[in-house]
Design a protein around this nucleic acid. Structure first.
Lengths: 210, 210
DNA sequence: CCTGACATCACCAAATATGGTTAGCGCTAG
DNA sequence: CTAGCGCTAACCATATTTGGTGATGTCAGG
């Protein structure tokens, strides 16, 4: 029995999916939600093996939601659903930890098939999606270095990631506290963020630091 | 009419594929080869739209061959075939420019389907292969649980990495500021750190969050 | 020579984060 | 049944971070 949770802001679709899936052999729908707010609680309530996630939702989109699910319940299988199949979102979804990606024009039978396939360890995708994923390998994705951080700035970012305070960094580098402050202001500006959390998150993802 | 060239060192398989494909509607087999030596000449002789390439061939393996095909006739669609589905070769094949990847236990009908799909711009893969490809994006062999963070704690850590302040997290989760404060205190304690920088650094390295 | 990027330093003010401590409620494993 | 854990919440105090603004010297490139 596969426990399935559904996230979709469209009521009609939500109901259709519930009708379709909950009757199907081997499938039990344990949660139907219209948004991903308080997703921790929703997961705890439904304890799904698999999540059908609409990618276009208000407030918290499906990609964000997928990331959080991946963090909270790493073993849940996630299948993204969307009307659009633009490359950007596919990658973001897959990086967020989705195993499958379906466009919403998929036939009902295909959805059930996809769920079975995903639970069996496969990665259901429509053919066009698959091609886009493949193309990702041939194109070079050297994310880093388009932020033009100076050596000093990278050095300070690195020290921040090690938990040093401005004061400690100043001491370590034999410069004034206010200089550290200045550098960090510049770093934030270049990375277009305004908090340490965002800065480090970006820095790790873009491999500016490791 | 799709012109197909077959590369396989096993005579039985070579013949089976020829039999299977050459009769099929829309498909014309214009070349059957047992190795990839002098591949330039072989391509010139067969002028394929699509190549079915065995990955395990003597002298010049299928991956090398694919690279050369990509150089000589960039527009040819390449489908790799193999008995093994080890991750390393899948990636090498895809980087070499293959559009599809089938294991040899695929049903005859699936092969024809795959050819049609590939010519239509898709990327046929067996479900297991697809999953391995997807895993490349997430590849998380995380020592996830050694810190015993609760669901809520992981959720909050994730939000911190997105740059949210305590206050914003409180709003997002519909809980009090002081509760967030408490959770973060607990997180720091469990991770044995005492700053956001260290916490995030550890969380990223240990793949607690992504 | 002038401009821009870099590294350095400073003052001010407000917002946030961190640590210590305490406590209620619900659940579950022993 | 009780001890422990997770989630919630609060108070206080201090340390730290963030943003605005401005300044100096150096060095490379147009």
């Amino acid at each position: 029995m596969t426990r399935v949770a559904i996230f979709d802001d469209n009521e009609r679709i939500r109901n259709s999916l519930y009708m379709l899936l909950d009757g199907s052999p081997g499938i039990e729908v344990t949660g139907v939600f219209e948004d991903a707010e308080q997703i921790g609680l929703k997961l705890q309530k439904s304890l799904p093996d698999l999540v059908l996630m609409d990618i276009d939702m208000p407030v918290i989109n499906g990609i964000e939601a997928a990331k959080q699910i991946r963090t909270i319940l790493p073993k849940v299988v996630i299948i993204m659903q969307t009307i659009f199949d633009d490359e950007e979102r596919i990658f973001q979804s897959l990086k967020a930890g989705a195993q499958g990606y379906l466009t919403k024009d998929a036939a009902p039978l295909k959805i059930i098939e996809a769920i079975e396939e995903a639970m069996a360890g496969g990665s259901p995708m429509t053919p066009g999606i698959a091609r886009k994923v493949i193309n990702y390998f041939t194109s070079n994705h050297s994310d880093h270095d388009e932020f033009n951080l100076s050596l000093r700035e990278k050095e300070i970012l690195q020290l921040l990631s090690e938990g040093l305070s401005y004061k400690m960094i100043a001491a370590r580098l034999y410069i004034a506290y206010e200089t550290v402050h200045s550098h960090i202001r510049k770093i934030y500006q270049k990375l277009q963020v305004n908090s340490l959390g965002e800065a480090l998150s970006l820095a790790f993802r873009k491999k500016i630091i490791s």
